[in-house]
Nucleic acid binder design. Sequence first.
DNA 1: ACCTGAACACCGTTCAAGT
DNA 2: ACCTGAACACCGTTCAAGT
Lengths: 243, 243
Amino acid sequence: MPANAPHRPAKAATKAATGAQSPPRRPRDSLNRAVILDAAIRIAERDGLDGLTFQALGKDLGAHATAMYRHFRDKDELLLEMIDELRERSYGGALTSTGRWQDDLRLQAHSIREHYLRYAAFAQQMAPRSTHRSMEIANTEFALSALARAGLDDDESVLYLRLFGNYIRAMSSLEAGVQSLDPGLRAKDRVEWQVAAEGLDPATYPIVHRLGARMLPYDDPRVFDLGLELMIAEIERIGAARR
Amino acid sequence: MPANAPHRPAKAATKAATGAQSPPRRPRDSLNRAVILDAAIRIAERDGLDGLTFQALGKDLGAHATAMYRHFRDKDELLLEMIDELRERSYGGALTSTGRWQDDLRLQAHSIREHYLRYAAFAQQMAPRSTHRSMEIANTEFALSALARAGLDDDESVLYLRLFGNYIRAMSSLEAGVQSLDPGLRAKDRVEWQVAAEGLDPATYPIVHRLGARMLPYDDPRVFDLGLELMIAEIERIGAARR
DNA sequence: ACCTGAACACCGTTCAAGT
DNA sequence: ACCTGAACACCGTTCAAGT
């Protein structure tokens, strides 16, 4: 039996011979966007974004791969819906204010960062795309409210909203990117700095030669907070000067 | 003639019939990493990363698609080499110091950012990966030297090097990601904020309702410098306190 | 040793056919 | 109306065969 024959021209015959029959047809209307989205997220979490194919989706759902096209225009539409659904699941309800604008910004920054790291495979797709769904608008209102309470005027608010938002998404996306790399490759990375530093000419690269062994990994967790506190301190300064 | 038959089983026969013959065989050793890299970069700049396939490469070079496998282990190795080659082309020689550490950091930040925006399709691949090639080590020495002249000690230097480096790569990568999106989609984005803001309930979203029309795009160029200056000012403060 | 040709095991997507 | 089956036009990668 030519088990690996491509494009099996005699599939039906093989089936008849082995007694295998088509899996039961999926009952009508049992497939819908919610069910497909659910399976897609489950598959992506298990096998990564590369593992998410229409064939895998069909297998998981017991349906034909092309059945998805009745519910999503193409794969990109599926992906966008997944991003939105994940967002909904992660910070379901709106954030509740802590009472202090500084802590509100910290809370928001960390909740977004955790979301990106939890769904690291999606991070690079999420960061530059806005959905304008209610979740995003609620988040924007939350941040703008904190900036207003800090004492920023309208012009400053829209500017610092972008710095704050971009910083959080960009840095989280980078961390997620690092963590999505092959683990073996990342381990090699750290060692290589040490090796490279030791083998270096101390005359041309004196500081790298001296500090190479103490270099921090790209995703050192202290870095995110360091920049975050810098922004909060600056916002505090601007607000105080304005009063 | 079945022009669109897949996996053309009668290719040789067709060729003989039409009189077409195999293109001239590529002369021995005319293919090498440099030549392939050059073509790959040309193709990627013209057709984007999605257009860069071994088939396109073969066509461009007048060689068989699989000939590349003699020179690169797989596509990922080709991609890494491309990233490194582009880096080499962008900021060819090492940066030369301006004499002021603040301006050195600004120079480096902007040259890296321009590099990311110029090769926006690669940005998301470049950001989280380090190559440990000479270019990267020279850049690291340059930044560490600036931080040392600012007055930072070793611990502070390695920490702020990461913040500085991650900020630049992360923010540049985000901007590149935005600019890689479909242009039509980006235009829609800006309008949608305005529409969303106007249709909003002013009671639940008072600030977004008021400021929605003035929202800045994700890739507003002022944002990058705003954060950059924040970091430089902080480094200045730390250095001054230490003296 | 270097390049080609054919094959393998996939993809996303379209569309006529089944139910 | 919803789902299936077959096909189309691609991918990256392997490997035996040509030169």
